[in-house]
Design a binder for these strands. Structure first.
Length: 171
DNA sequence: ACGATGATGAAC
DNA sequence: TTCATCATCGTA
């Protein structure tokens, strides 16, 4: 069983998508080489009201991809040296997304983009095979008992929003 | 604990 | 135009 996830999967609220992404496979093709790794750690970033989200300050040149309909990549640069991968979720005009924090055997949002050679070239492109970066359901079932929810990392400045359990980790 | 390293956005 | 901040990581 191997199914490529399309736009419909992503056009739901970020929390639902984040939860559903655990156990799916992020697939990257570079030249003839294909790498598929199971998704094990993600964080949901909600709409304009989520103070931890880039979208909370309104639409800017950087976060514009988040305002599109779900099913696209939002890849941004931070700390002067890191690229961070996000899947845009929700309907058009409702900026939200899911950040990829860890894959099987590859922990760290900036480490996984480096390993898979993901950078601004993937920003604002569709989550599809044609992009060279897509997501597959390979039939892995993830029971609730294997999921640990907790607060998101590195968002202490976000007040009440920093404490919300929007991180989903596969144990 | 902290430096690397530069884009971003808000203030001025 | 300046400046603090930053969805991080590696080294100490």
């Amino acid at each position: 069983m191997r199914r490529i996830l399309g736009p419909r999967f992503f056009r739901r609220d970020a929390l639902t998508v984040a939860r559903a992404l655990l156990g799916k496979f992020l697939v990257r093709r570079v030249g003839r080489k294909e790498t598929a790794l199971m998704i094990t750690d993600v964080e949901a970033y909600l709409g304009l009201e989520d103070k931890a989200s880039h979208a909370s300050r309104g639409k800017t040149k950087r976060n514009a991809p988040m305002f599109a309909a779900g099913g696209r990549w939002y890849v941004y640069f931070t700390y002067g040296m890191h690229w961070i991968l996000n899947a845009v979720t929700g309907p058009e005009g409702h900026p939200s997304g899911v950040m990829f924090r860890g894959l099987e055997g590859l922990q760290g949002p900036a480490r996984l983009t480096k390993a898979l050679r993901i950078s601004k070239r993937q920003n604002d492109t569709p989550i599809a095979r044609a992009t060279g970066l897509w997501i597959e359901d390979r039939g892995v079932r993830v029971p609730k008992s294997r999921i640990k929810r907790g607060p998101r990392i590195g968002v202490d400045y976000a007040g009440d929003w920093a404490k919300k359990p929007y991180r989903f980790k596969l144990l």
